[in-house]
Simulated assay, not measured.
Amino acid sequence: MTSALPKRAATIRDVAALAGVSIKTVSRVLNSEAGVVAETQALVRAAVAQLNYTPNLSARNLASVVEATIGLAYSHMRLDDDDDRGGYQYSLILQIGALEACQQNGFGLIPMPCDVRAADKIEQLVAQVRERRIGGLVIAAPLGNTPGLLDALNKYGIPYVCINPNDLGPLTPHVAIDELAAAREMTEHLIGFGHRKIGFIKGIQGSRVSEERYQGYAAAHAAHGLAINPQWVMQGEFTFRSGMACGHALLSLAAPPTAIFASNDDMAVGVVHAANALGVRIPAEVSVAGFDDTELARFSWPPLTTIRQPLERMAHTAVEQLIGLIRPQRIARLVHPVHVVYPCKLISRASVAAPLAT
């Protein structure tokens, strides 16, 4: 190699000239593509170091058939300031995990909130992906359960990986958790404290996540020979407001439950607010448990016992799997189609205690 250094910022052409290879070869080395001999890779990397060359991600995007940008699509409702804005913690945690994976792999991340009430949300999402030349999507539940969405992405050849979708079949790339096992563990935890009257607040109707969490609750009851009082099972919407309404209804019963397990932290915090409004002490008079372990669970008073769903890790994995679908040579260790299921962890805090003696 020669030793001449350009005074201006180095370009990929400079790297190619210094290494004595083609621009295409430099690109293949920088993208960690297979098929470049070790000696050539060493020449290119030495030239990169000597020139202090930094790849221009935007320029690489424009020149690439498959863009180095990933979209994180999630449900979002445009609400008035005084309305319930549940789900923000969930989407923020996913963004943190997705951004970390993108940065580690030289990809950009574009958050793509979708108004779940918009009749044309599928058309809007597909149009954004195509117009902005986004390489693929990580789709968070419940948006991924929108009828027709995955068919539309398949039609236009847009790669995707879903987080906690309804469909865990072999044709849907996904990252998920064992919902049933986690919910059963939480219910067993409450039973272990001596609770026999356990209320349950479901999430969105038609959601696999919501149904499997209820199945876990029911399985724990069956294992201990406990009957489920239908009055203690309420239909929520995974929102703070629905949790508060369900909590108020449960605690206003003539024979209220001694513990309430809500299907997510937003609803569990709603139950806490309902209990405070009714003058019901937590955990002395009612224990409350949630699911997800968002910051709401830690900052609630008392802090919530909950299930820690590894959302950051799931988003990180989903991005890596998606990059593997977009550019298989970048992450060759991955196996496709994508099917990853993570366990959860029960986090015990001050919102659960033994029931009052009767």
Rank of each mutant, 00 (worst) to 15 (best):
A259L: 09
L322Q: 00
E285N: 03
A350M: 05
G135F: 04
I23C: 10
M77E: 10
A49F: 06
L250S: 12
C114D: 01
A10M: 07
D80C: 14
R28W: 07
L296Y: 02
Q309E: 12
Y88N: 05
R60E: 13
F200D: 07
F238E: 00
I23V: 15
P113S: 08
P343L: 11
S348Q: 14
T11Q: 07
P257I: 03
L149S: 07
A284H: 11
K197D: 15
P343Y: 08
G270K: 00
G194R: 04
V288Q: 09
T239G: 15
D14K: 06
A219C: 10
A9Q: 15
I347L: 11
C246K: 00
A219G: 11
H189I: 01
I93H: 03
I110K: 09
I93P: 09
V161P: 12
L30R: 03
A249R: 07
L43I: 00
Q124G: 11
A318F: 04
E188K: 09
A46P: 01
R241P: 10
M267L: 06
L109W: 02
A42E: 06
A4W: 09
C162A: 13
A63K: 12
A17N: 08
I23L: 14
P337Q: 13
H273F: 12
A42R: 12
L171R: 14
P55R: 04
I158V: 15
L168D: 13
P142G: 12
I177Q: 08
H174T: 07
E185D: 15
V48T: 05
N56L: 04
V129I: 00
A140H: 05
P303C: 00
R8A: 12
R327D: 11
P257W: 00
V209Y: 01
D265K: 02
V209C: 10
S351C: 09
C102Q: 11
L137A: 09
M1G: 13
A16P: 12
K202Q: 13
D293I: 01
Q329K: 06
G192R: 03
G97L: 06
N229S: 12
I331C: 08
L251N: 10
G87W: 01
M77A: 11
G106A: 11
F238N: 03
A9L: 14
S58Y: 13
M112A: 07
D81I: 03
A183T: 04
N145Q: 06
T306K: 05
I12D: 03
L153N: 05
A152Q: 05
A17Q: 06
L94K: 00
A289I: 03
Q104S: 13
H76P: 02
E285L: 02
D293R: 05
R308M: 00
H248M: 13
I158H: 10
V341L: 09
P113I: 00
I134Y: 06
R327G: 08
S75A: 15
I139S: 08
A119M: 08
D81L: 14
Q41L: 04
G247T: 00
R117Q: 14
G97I: 04
D82A: 13
D115V: 13
G148N: 02
T358D: 12
G225A: 08
E211F: 07
I331F: 08
G270D: 09
T294Y: 04
